[in-house]
Design a binder for these strands. Structure first.
Length: 453
RNA sequence: GGAAGGGUGUCCGAGUGGUUUAAGGAAACGGUCUUGAAAACCGUCGUGGGGCAACUCACCGUGGGUUCGAAUCCCACCCCUUCCGCCA
């Protein structure tokens, strides 16, 4: 969520930015509620203060604990109870409205009304030219007995699949490849340097997160989409995560972390679950849009000042991985309508799919600034500035010592590879006239040197 | 599923109705000392809200209740740990 203080000071800007994202929130009504809420709180607090004074007085050794004085205490208690009852519905509506305010897009995020207005930043690699009609993933899958959706439908319903044989080996090769790259500090350093990012070169730590999470942290992450995306296990009041990001970004829920932990860089691998409600009839063929798919996901927690650079590192890594694999893609700067509620900025990578003859989304990279961290209460305790530095900055001689400032962290997440879509891209882009699939060179070492499927 | 023990600040941990204004310790930060460091010593040090500020309010797993007054007493719930059972 956004800082209410900021909304008070910049109501028009917040309203304007929310409208750009397509979230019509009534900021003036929110501020009215905020005003009423604060007035009531002020009253309650003054009553509580008088209660404290009064009861302390009564509690004194041999204090004047007469019936009259106890009656006075009871009156204060009644006032507080009444004011709290009045506050409650306002508090509920206030919290709801505050959470409904989307994050503010950064200044350079293009304003647009739909994903059609995302801006193509660059196109890398050329779509392969075939002297035959390229096959779709499901056709290639059928040829080599790699995908069985019919039996999966019998067992689990539509949008599920049994993946088999060399396709599975390809997935594990992909995982091995990415693990090797992102845990390699030399590579991170190279990408940091090439992009002039001036941030840590610390490698990513691989994580296998839980696949389920509770309502409270999920809601606080601003990622819970109960209507369209997320599956619920009613019996146990748990949700199935729709991305490793959901169980990674919530990992430090309600914590204050020491500065020397930062940046925290995780590479999560998890099976992800999506209801795909409202997509009936869309992308039904093949394995492009599934209820269940495996995904490698980057998640970083950073200091406020390095958040944007971290986001850029994620993008650099995504491009590096795509280029190593040899897949043609476009990098898109997402416009205000498409970045999503908690995002301040975001990019997509759309990979070329010869079967459809289109670029389709395979990656996304999100930068949330402190929006997620505020509700998740994930904070960093900064090291104290040295006294001399403090004195220079403030002109004060007083030693600036003791515990360090507490700030909200910044979060950024990004797809490394979504398995099913990447496998589909590999199948279709590296297919041959006779229906074989050339194994990308970089993956061959992880497939026993196998050249083709 | 059965049983027991727990949940207090960044961490550990004391605290069974009113100087708790949450002890004490550790970590962290500043200083003294030192060639430098360590040690020792001195000092600072919970989070969140309101207020220009002095200051003030809340927070001891969560929600209710009792009381003039609750970390402390009562009720309900949640979570964690261990053991037994079942099980990959």
């Amino acid at each position: 969520m956004i800082d209410i203080q900021y909304i008070r000071e910049n109501p028009d800007l917040v309203a304007q930015k929310a409208a750009q994202k397509g979230y019509p929130v009534d900021i003036s009504h929110l501020l009215e509620l905020d005003k009423i809420r604060r007035d009531k709180l002020t009253y309650i607090e003054s009553e509580l203060a008088s209660r404290n004074v009064h009861s302390k007085w009564l509690g004194k050794e041999g204090g004047p604990s007469s019936e009259e004085n106890r009656e006075k205490g009871r009156r204060i208690k009644e006032n507080v109870a009444r004011a709290r009852a009045e506050l409650e519905p306002i508090e509920v509506e206030y919290q709801e409205m505050l959470r409904a305010v989307p994050n503010m897009p950064l200044a350079d995020v293009p304003v647009g009304a739909s994903e059609d207005e995302n801006v193509v930043v660059k196109t890398v690699g050329a779509p392969p030219e075939f002297d035959f009609t390229p096959r779709h993933d499901y056709q290639l899958g059928e040829l080599h007995d790699l995908i069985d959706k019919e039996r999966a439908a019998k067992i689990a319903g539509s949008r599920f699949a049994y993946l088999k044989g060399d396709l599975v080996r390809l997935q594990f090769a992909l995982i091995q490849f990415v693990m090797g790259e992102l845990t390699n500090e030399q590579l991170i350093k190279k990408l940091v340097d090439e992009n002039n990012l001036n941030i840590s070169t610390k490698p990513f730590t691989p994580v296998l997160p839980p696949a389920m999470l509770r309502t409270e942290p999920y809601r606080a992450s601003a990622r819970l989409n109960a209507e369209e995306v997320t599956y619920k296990i009613e019996q146990d009041d748990l949700w199935l995560q729709a991305s490793a990001e959901h169980t990674l970004c919530t990992m430090y829920w309600n914590e204050i972390l020491p500065e020397d932990m930062f940046p925290i860089r995780y590479l999560g691998y998890a099976t992800s679950f999506r209801r795909e409600a409202g997509t009936y009839g869309k992308d039904e063929e093949g394995i492009f849009r599934m209820h269940q798919f495996d995904k490698l996901e980057m998640e970083s927690f950073t200091t406020p000042e390095t958040g944007l650079a971290e986001h850029k590192l994620h993008i650099a890594i995504q491009e590096h991985l795509m280029q190593k694999l040899g897949l043609p893609y476009q990098l898109l700067q997402k416009c205000t309508a498409d970045i999503g509620k908690p995002n301040a900025a975001g990019v997509d990578i759309n990979c070329w799919f010869p079967g459809q003859g289109k670029y389709r989304e395979t990656h996304t990279a999100d930068y949330m600034t402190d929006y997620q961290a505020r509700d998740l209460k994930i904070r960093i305790r900064r090291k104290k500035r040295p006294v001399s530095e403090f004195a220079a900055a403030t002109g004060q001689e007083t030693a600036y010592s003791g515990g360090g400032d507490v700030q909200l962290v910044h979060t950024a997440d990004a797809t490394a590879f979504a398995m099913s879509r990447t496998l589909k891209a590999i199948l279709e882009n590296f297919q041959t006239r006779d229906g074989h699939i050339i194994v990308p060179e970089i993956l061959r070492p992880f497939m026993g040197g196998q050249l083709q499927i």
